[in-house]
Design a binder for these strands. Structure first.
Length: 655
DNA sequence: TTAGGGTTAG
């Protein structure tokens, strides 16, 4: 048969070929659709009208039956049929309509080619979309754009860029739609090569062709730079925009929020509220703003934002409510997360995942598992992220057997293949529990390539349990996979320092320097009376610093009398014990604790956030303060929460 | 005929 044919579709024509004998021999392929279109000269038959009406009513089955008796379907009839196949998510019907269309001489119609590509994109059949494109000789800008969209959604960014160059060579210029798809393609690549360079070239082309006044394109550009972590470029584009709307503001706020610049995100939000009259924030804006509050653990800010959401009636929008659940949990108010969740009329898998991870990050592993089961009981199927959340919760709580069983159930019961993230959770779970060999075995047996997250989990566990040999193995891979991540070098140096291997510590530090990298400085912050105060280990600019240091020396002396022994193995310098003690006493979280002791009233909980993992010494020191200073102290480190109360931490010293 | 920002984890 000359007509378009798909592989693996043996029953393809059975539905339509009841009169197949009358159709043979096959017609030669038409060259130009308009010239051979059998219906351009005649008005649509009654059958055509009936098919169109059935499609509009959503009755695809009957529409297809009528189609089998209609010798002259029109372009519009096919258009509605293809749309209907998309709505019904039916690939087999789609293929049948496609074959029918080809048999009736429409295979070179660029309008229908566009519709076919869009339909196959919707049905996740990228190969089919590509075949339609390849067979279409007259490629309008719509046809090109449809394929760009298809490939971008499928993560084939590099292929889009190749085609884009091909399109330009063919003399076809880009329009505003091509630019948005191609910019998105730069960040949608599954390949390992960064396409940022290409994104910048496209940016230049946009400027050359005067498309920089199109808000859609400039917003996509902001988003592209945001996803590459190029905040300066993104804010430059944003500031240069002559006209901004709610989407461009939201894109810039999201850019700050996801790139560790939560202060800036909140600042920009306030600017948006005060400086714009016609761009009032919407639900999407609020999600990013809540993310920023969560990142900073800015509870008071978060509560104000919650009030605004209620006043604006945005509290029924699921992503907003899920972001509220997460915000309260990350601000240390788990009970408020639960309350917000309980008040939801409708919940989706994201809402459940938010609650599961909320309990997880606070160390309530069993509760997280219970919620996971409740979710399934309520008929909501777990997603891949549900498993990341619940496995993470098991890891924080040391629930090894439960974690293993859940991991097994992924494939068996829920048909979800484990991804790199799930393996990383399992390695973390076993590694933390000092089952390092078992963790290494998991990596060996992985069916997919273990990425930096997996090796990073193993290295983190080696640091906790001081396993030099395995740490060297993991870091060797990590230095290849992500040579610019300073954290990995620091972890390896930590392992060497704990083993008193000072020459090795020195050489890791040299490697770090040679590669132009720096250790991320420890930073802690605290919200007191709606204001945020930030501390770094050596903070000469804080007017209270002297007072804070004096208080810390006094507290340290007192706590030593009560049994506190400074843990100095975290110091990466070969110094004497006294010097090491001085260094750990200046850690940012201790400064924040001291600030909290001075500036909070009796009975008020101290809430601190830290950008790195809490060190052993600060952990031990804070336990003593909670007992002898009679203070509740809540610390959120980069991984989880620590509730210090009466000399005990909720993590059970397992973090 | 086609388009831009957000949702959970690590």
């Amino acid at each position: 048969m000359w007509a378009f044919q798909f592989p693996q579709t043996p029953q393809l024509h059975s539905h339509f070929y009841t009169n197949s004998a009358a159709r043979l021999p096959p017609k030669p392929p038409p060259i130009f659709s308009v010239a051979v279109n059998p219906t351009t000269t005649s008005s649509p038959s009654n059958n055509n009208k009936l098919i169109q009406s059935l499609c509009k009513q959503g009755n695809l089955k009957q529409a297809l039956e009528v189609l089998s008796n209609e010798p002259n379907p029109t372009q519009h009839t096919y258009e509605l049929l293809l749309l209907s196949c998309s709505h019904h998510n039916s690939l087999s019907d789609a293929e049948n309509v496609h074959c029918h269309l080809v048999d009736n001489g429409f295979d070179q119609d660029p309008f229908l080619a566009t519709k076919l590509i869009n339909m196959y994109t919707h049905l996740d059949s990228i190969d089919h979309a590509r075949q339609v494109f390849d067979k279409t000789r007259r490629r309008t800008i719509y046809v090109w754009n449809a394929l760009f969209r298809a490939l971008t959604l499928a993560g084939c960014g590099e292929e889009v860029l190749d085609l884009y160059r091909q399109m330009n060579r063919s003399g076809m210029g880009s329009d505003r739609f091509s630019y948005t798809y191609v910019l998105k393609a730069c960040v949608s690549s599954y390949g390992v090569v960064s396409l940022l360079k290409h994104g910048k070239e496209i940016h230049a082309s946009i400027l050359r062709h005067g498309y920089d006044r199109i808000v859609h394109i400039m917003t996509t550009l902001i988003d592209m730079y945001a996803r590459f972590g190029c905040v300066t470029y993104a804010s430059f584009v944003f500031n240069e925009m002559a006209v901004k709307n709610v989407v461009s503001w939201s894109a810039m706020i999201a850019c700050y929020a996801r790139n560790g610049m939560a202060f800036e995100a909140l600042e920009l939000f306030h600017e948006m509220m005060t400086e714009t009259q016609d761009s009032s924030p919407n639900s999407v804006t609020m999600v990013s703003v809540l993310q920023a509050c969560a990142a900073l653990a800015a509870l008071e800010q978060g509560k104000l934002i919650h009030g605004y959401i209620l006043r604006r009636g945005l509290d029924s929008i699921l992503p907003v409510v899920s972001a509220l659940v997460t915000m309260y949990a990350r601000c240390g108010k788990l009970e408020l997360s639960q309350r917000v969740f309980d008040q939801m009329d409708k919940r989706d898998v994201v809402s459940w995942n938010s609650l599961i991870s909320s309990y997880g990050v606070h160390g309530f592993g069993q509760k997280a598992i219970q919620i996971f089961k409740e979710m399934i009981y309520h008929g909501v199927s777990p997603s891949s992220i549900s498993f990341v959340s619940v496995l993470g919760a098991c890891s924080h709580a040391g629930l090894i057997e439960e974690g293993k069983m859940l991991f097994q159930s992924m494939r068996k019961e829920h048909m979800i293949g484990p991804s790199v993230e799930h393996y990383a959770c399992m390695v973390d779970l076993l590694g933390r529990a000092n089952k390092l060999e078992e963790a290494a075995k998991i990596i060996e047996d992985m069916r997919i390539e273990p990425g930096p997250k997996v090796w990073g989990s193993l290295l983190g566990s080696c640091r906790i349990h001081c396993n030099v040999e395995l740490a060297e193995r993991a870091s060797k891979r990590l230095f290849e996979l992500e040579p610019t991540n300073a954290g990995n070098y620091v972890l390896l140096a930590d392992v060497y320092a704990a083993a008193n291997m000072w020459d090795e510590v020195k050489s890791v530090k040299k490697l770090l320097e040679a590669r132009g990298l720096q250790k991320v400085p420890g930073r802690s912050w605290i919200e007191v009376k709606r204001k945020m105060y930030s501390f770094v280990s050596v903070d000469e600019f804080n007017p209270q610093a002297e007072q804070l240091h004096a208080l810390l020396i006094k507290l340290s002396t007192e706590m030593k009398e009560k049994g506190y022994v400074p843990q100095t193995k975290v110091v990466l310098y070969d110094l004497d014990t006294q010097e090491k003690e001085r260094i750990v006493l200046g850690h940012s979280e201790k400064l924040a604790v001291a600030f909290g002791l001075i500036n909070t009233s009796k009975g008020e909980t101290i809430r601190i956030t830290k950008n790195l993992r809490l060190c052993e010494d600060c952990h031990s020191f804070t336990k003593f303060i909670s007992k002898f200073g009679n203070k509740e102290i809540l610390v959120r480190d980069v991984n989880r929460f620590h509730h210090f109360h009466d000399g005990v931490c909720s993590c059970g010293d397992y973090w």
